[in-house]
Amino acid sequence: MIDEPVLRPLTPSDAAEYHALVQRNAAHLTRLGDYRDEVAATLDEVAARLAGPGPLRYGIVLRERLIGRIDLIPVDPPRYGLGYWLGEYATGQGYATKAVASALQHVRTLAATDVYAGVTHGNDRTVALLRRLGFTMVASFDSYDRFHLALTAEDGS
């Protein structure tokens, strides 16, 4: 049986494990500039973020070990933004595709109609993942492209 990643809500009790994962992956996460603020955050700041209001935050867990994070951001419900990352050692194994597909199933339960994702230029793996899951590019900006997925009755919502 192939190990499947699962999503679970991130809470302040996950702060130490999450912070350590971010620190171990600092070079990976900042290669394209996306996560500089996350890498710079202290443990106390991480705990406060996980306690506060904001996006729906989920840990990507494999064999009871945190390997990444997915956020569903209620931009203008029923429209949501999507953000995710995996630790470098967990990339290229299909875990991100499975985790994002799971997040999309969850957002359908929230009566979402649209999901958007911004992808930093050069992040070809994420572009490929989003396209595999049915997203299309809808806008291009100086540093990133915006992708969109319309959720319809035909796809299970």
Rank of each mutant, 00 (worst) to 15 (best):
L56E: 13
A99F: 09
L21V: 01
A15V: 04
F135A: 12
P5G: 09
W85G: 09
E154Q: 12
N25Y: 05
I70K: 04
D14E: 07
G94M: 01
S13P: 00
G81E: 11
E64F: 08
V6Q: 07
Q93Y: 05
P55V: 05
A117W: 07
K98G: 10
D155I: 13
L72K: 03
D155M: 15
Y144Q: 08
L7E: 05
G59N: 09
I67L: 08
T91R: 06
A47T: 11
G52D: 14
D3M: 08
A90E: 04
R146W: 02
V107L: 01
T120Q: 14
T30I: 12
I73P: 02
I60R: 02
L149Q: 07
R8Y: 07
S140K: 13
D76T: 00
D142F: 02
D114W: 03
D145W: 01
Y89D: 15
A41K: 07
N25F: 06
V61A: 12
A41S: 15
L104V: 09
V39T: 04
R57K: 14
P5W: 10
G94P: 04
S157R: 15
Y84T: 13
V115M: 07
L82N: 12
A20L: 02
P74K: 03
H106S: 04
G156H: 11
I60P: 06
R31A: 15
S143G: 11
A96H: 03
Y84N: 13
A51L: 07
V115P: 08
Q93H: 14
R8P: 07
G81L: 11
